[in-house]
Design a protein around this nucleic acid. Sequence first.
DNA 1: CATAATTTCGAAATCGTTTCCGCATTTTAT
DNA 2: ATAAAATGCGGAAACGATTTCGAAATTATG
Lengths: 340, 340
Amino acid sequence: MASGISLKELAAELKLAPSTVSRALNDSYEISEATKKKVISMAEKLNYHANPFARSLRENKSKTIAIIIPERINSFFAQVMDGIEEIAQEHGYHLLIYNTHEDMERERKIVNLLLNGRADAIAMSVTSQTSDNSHLKKLHDRGLPIIFFDRISSEIPTTKFITNDYESAYEATQHLINQNCKKITFFTLCVDLSISKERQRGFNDAIADAGIELDPSMTLYCGHDEQSNIEKIQELLNSANRPDGIVTSVEKLAFATYQALKRTNLRMPNDLKLISFSNSSIAGLLNPSLTTITQPASMIGSECAKLLIKKLTKPNHYDLIDQVITIPSKITIRESTCQE
Amino acid sequence: MASGISLKELAAELKLAPSTVSRALNDSYEISEATKKKVISMAEKLNYHANPFARSLRENKSKTIAIIIPERINSFFAQVMDGIEEIAQEHGYHLLIYNTHEDMERERKIVNLLLNGRADAIAMSVTSQTSDNSHLKKLHDRGLPIIFFDRISSEIPTTKFITNDYESAYEATQHLINQNCKKITFFTLCVDLSISKERQRGFNDAIADAGIELDPSMTLYCGHDEQSNIEKIQELLNSANRPDGIVTSVEKLAFATYQALKRTNLRMPNDLKLISFSNSSIAGLLNPSLTTITQPASMIGSECAKLLIKKLTKPNHYDLIDQVITIPSKITIRESTCQE
DNA sequence: CATAATTTCGAAATCGTTTCCGCATTTTAT
DNA sequence: ATAAAATGCGGAAACGATTTCGAAATTATG
């Protein structure tokens, strides 16, 4: 609790005015080199560290960026966070982390917490339930720089980073068609989410463009509970018109499919081919190894951070214009979609 | 940048003194219910949010906990962070995240940043290079509550949370011996780390207790580079005295072993059995599924947070006494160590 | 009714910085 | 030689909240 020495005490020790010491430490041109040296060395000696709150209060900025993610830290969000962290640390920014746990009410609370300057900027991925975004609007109206990534809120006019969900899903589906799949199913989670919609659209279009009749049974809606997902998938795989190709829109549904598959006597890739959106580093170690669409998570994170910091350091030179920046995903073909 | 309305402005609007408004908002007994109601509703109406820096400056506390981790967010640290986040959010605490990237110099810098009250408490896992811990000592001497988890610094007299690394490694090794392995090798990363040492010790003792002669070739030292690890392991597997059982002290070395194995014609578990420390949720999906020692990561995180918050809210009732609390890991036996 | 006790609120200090303004003193220009 | 400008520093206000102390208004008490 002993919070160290203050600027005033340091000044007293040096027999200088606080204003002089402050300027010396901030390398002001008004202070002679001689006194600067004296001040700095005394500060070192007495282990002086400026109080961040006093400074933030005075300067009305916190040198802090807040990250808001919607769920427990999975491989995707971990990589995004790592990407942001790298850039933030490089520029001396601090990082606050919040998790909305897919709960819009929590999202609203957290956003309100950030309304008072605790963070200078925000990078966030919205909740799957975020229908009303008045709280986000308020944040934006206050002038707080905010960037969305992955799960974006299109109604807030700012910069958003996503990956090419539509194209990737299209390509993934096309890949299965090329591998001779006749009945392809799309596994998805939350239909309200921007990325889910895009991926679904990519799937639908690829199916339609291949001249296949699109019907609702070609989409399986899953939930957040692992076990019931597995059962639901198992049921599908045991049914009469089981698919011979699957595109899963999120990593965890691919894993659930592996689990479900274990309980059947179907073989992958012979009876069934699987391709999934995933950032897991061990997709190549699964049995069979999993063909993936890998999102550029780390780069999304670092680009968010770079842009935010640019905006913060040169507010007039950069603007978070209302645009969606797409960083393409990468499809890695592995055994799970091999031709038998 | 428009940082909202201030207490003073709110007071002016209400034709009350700032002190009264402050007390009303903090539910002081000195204020009548009538004025409290008026103040609160006006605060709502004008969207007043207290400036956190002014408050922190005055109260000398930040309602913030800092987490310092030593490397990119893997499944273990992700779970720890989730555990901390859950408890922190419950109690209205904010979370700052720092990553030392296994660099002691960065660790020192980050720790120095926290020397001035930016965080009320710290939960950290040290760098593998942390030999000199004067910076940690300084932090502790200042009276800042600090807790170590997983990678602990035993010289700082505070509470530490670890898992039973020694026993787990011992049991894991014993398990391989019971499965008829005759030549067992231990794969490890950093020998300086407390946890590495403990795991190594557990392995060594299990080997010795089984009446097997312990020799240095039974330990393979790996590095941080994925590819060279794979090559090193591959080389070992192709050598004359290849092991028939492996205990890997960290997750990534198990994955590297899977990769290396692909390049040989050895079969798991027939020719080789593998058990690893790991928190990956998809160990069961590997081919063959991986027998794991799972650390109670989430619980470690939540226990850290609970204890820190107790200490912060009732400083006199709780003390971070110099003790090591062990939360046991759990061994899950899967195909990779099955009897053929 | 006068005095004491209680309730309710205001004025001002305070936390640790930064910065505007002012004031010597010295240097440069005319 | 005198005016102008530059240099180096100090004093004090300000950021926005909390809190100590004290005063006014209300109620209770004798």
